[in-house]
Simulated scan of single mutants.
Amino acid sequence: MPPWFETTLAIFAAIAAVFFFGKYRETAAALHEAERMKHKLSKDLDRYRDVPQLRALRDGLVGERKLPEDDDGHAHLLIRDSGRKLVHVTVQKTASPVAGDEKIHYQSGGEQQLLQELE
Rank of each mutant, 00 (worst) to 15 (best):
D71K: 13
A34D: 12
G60V: 07
R80P: 01
A17C: 06
L57E: 09
H76Y: 07
W4H: 10
A28K: 09
E69S: 05
L9M: 07
A28Y: 05
D44S: 15
D70C: 06
M37F: 10
A75K: 04
K40D: 09
A28L: 09
L31K: 14
P52F: 00
E26G: 00
D59G: 09
V62G: 04
I11S: 09
K23L: 11
R80Y: 08
A16T: 08
M37Y: 11
H39I: 11
F20L: 15
R65W: 01
K38V: 08
P52I: 09
A29G: 01
V62W: 05
R58M: 07
Q53G: 11
D70W: 02
L54R: 06
Y24H: 07
Y48G: 00
K23P: 02
G60L: 01
Q53F: 09
P68W: 00
L77W: 06
V51H: 05
K23E: 14
P3A: 15
K38G: 08
F19C: 06
G73N: 04
L78R: 02
E64D: 15
F12E: 10
D46K: 11
G22W: 06
H74D: 10
L54D: 04
R25M: 04
A56W: 07
I15F: 13
L57Q: 01
D70N: 13
F12H: 05
R25P: 02
P68H: 08
